[in-house]
Design a protein around this nucleic acid. Sequence first.
DNA 1: TTGAAAGCGCTAACAA
DNA 2: TTGTTAGCGCTTTCAA
Lengths: 352, 352
Amino acid sequence: MTSDETLPAKRRSRGTGRVLIEDVARIANVSTQTVSRFFRAPSLVAEATGNVIREAVVATGYVPNLIAGSLASNRSQVVAILVPTIANPVHAAPVEGLATVLRSHGYQVLLGSTGYDAETEQDLIATFLGRRVDGLIITGISVLPAARRMIEAAGIPVVQIWELPDDPIDMAVGFSNFETGVQIAEHLAERGYRRTVVIAHAAVVDTRSAARVAGFKAASARLGLREAPVIKVDRTTSVQGFDILDRLFDVDSRLDSIFAVSDQVAIGVLLACQSRGIRLPETLGIVGFGDIEIAAQLTPTLTTVRINRYRLGELAGEMLLRRFQGLEVSEPVVDIGFDFVVRDSTPNRQMR
Amino acid sequence: MTSDETLPAKRRSRGTGRVLIEDVARIANVSTQTVSRFFRAPSLVAEATGNVIREAVVATGYVPNLIAGSLASNRSQVVAILVPTIANPVHAAPVEGLATVLRSHGYQVLLGSTGYDAETEQDLIATFLGRRVDGLIITGISVLPAARRMIEAAGIPVVQIWELPDDPIDMAVGFSNFETGVQIAEHLAERGYRRTVVIAHAAVVDTRSAARVAGFKAASARLGLREAPVIKVDRTTSVQGFDILDRLFDVDSRLDSIFAVSDQVAIGVLLACQSRGIRLPETLGIVGFGDIEIAAQLTPTLTTVRINRYRLGELAGEMLLRRFQGLEVSEPVVDIGFDFVVRDSTPNRQMR
DNA sequence: TTGAAAGCGCTAACAA
DNA sequence: TTGTTAGCGCTTTCAA
């Protein structure tokens, strides 16, 4: 017979049968508050007391319920990150950087894949706010107005990554995608290419790749070059060269170069050329974006733009952590820049 | 002057100033319980009542606090997944599959990167259990005993992925890594290769790649072939061919083929050969593992093993969902199999 | 179909 | 350095 019968009749316990902080407290002969303190700030507990508590924790196998702690403290120790798709290593890298930085400070990462869909993004934001995440990382700037209002109402720190928003929700870490397009156009022009075809991303919310194309076009116009034809692909995250190669020559049978908004697409074209016996780089100059690992090992090696993607996530995490500590973030919008990496896929082209 | 002064003096509210369920209830002129029901099971609320509540929700901008809900209901609606590193697309794919399946059922994904470290894995498991996740997905079988005990004590459903454990913690979705190694050895033998060098993973917790190597060795021995030399690399997730190529020829200057435990490594070697003008596939047969997207587009195309990685995560999610619904999982350990994909990198070799 | 009361397990505020 | 008390905001239980 248990002691349950000694409880007031009205008490209908829904207990989960797990070890609670009060069990530890009773065994260690201290208050629950002291046990709580022992976990959150051990330095505030006398060493002898701490040892007794530690023993009681081991003896009982106590695991603190962080949900209860979150409710009481109004801090969840969770940060959410929204990416278009985690299956693209370009977006996986910041997640890895973020998770690593946060974990060393006791925070965990809640992951949301939007599939390049603004509605899905908004739904995820709503859910994450309902979970009372302490901070939010968002890929890009195309946040729906309603979602933005929800975020602002929640008042939590937010970092937008991959772009430099004119009107940031809060903080941002990124670089000028437009400028990468400009440099690519200038490079191709300087090397003697005159008939570039651009391979862009069909997804409208991918404002990052759109900005690269816009930069390319603006610079081409300024240089007095023809307006490059653009073909659009549904997915820029996969290597799918043969179809694209056909479409390229359909659009301009005399093209001399391509600029693809992602390395994956550029590499697809490069490999398709190889497979069909089209000589590279003589026949076609190729520029990609992202500098994925394989870009430097292909033959020819790929001219592209390198971003420190891991650092992007790491830095975003560090900015959130500063805010969590109540500190100022001196530079709320950080330009981490990019490296334009010239390799063998865009050699000097003899003028015609 | 606010109404605060009418509150009992002892009441020291720590309220967050946000809209609460009771605000909605007051405005809609119903009890908090009815509002709660409206969110969890709208069909139990009269339509007219529901409409009034909906209006009140919109008017106030109420966002339910899921933390409080989790504490009260003892369900967090969160599933955690542990992967060695999210930066490897091979491990990112199941995460994407899991997240997609779970999201459509109102569950979110908490992500943990272990960095192929068992201690880190254990720490993450402890944290996730403290957060009272409703389910857990673990990559592989090398869970430390203490971590295993914690999981079993928590009594939540668990799915181990990528392997078929002899002694599963709970459920599993995987395939026989050993058997992939066997088929690779048989294929190379049948095609006339006699001097294979194996490129393995140095990380001891990567029991998956170890099993592939073991299968390869067992089959080679059974076929009466020489025991293949093994070289170990620290990271199998990156394309790093030149160093490895040198080491290969150091180990066996007359090797005729390689088996790499990951496509990334196999492709690194393939590209390094290309770059150095080593003729493929004549000089060297190459087999990888994983069938990453680019494998089919290289020249020569890569012989490898295909796993439905996305499905791996999806299926694991579906198994958890069944358990959450209190249903039986008829087959707790599922073998999803693999496809051995023979391509151009391992042509028939003329006997010497 | 709706409501009242009593927790869920922890931490913040205050006091000693 | 430690303890007491009163919540955190929701859902469960039970009753109507």
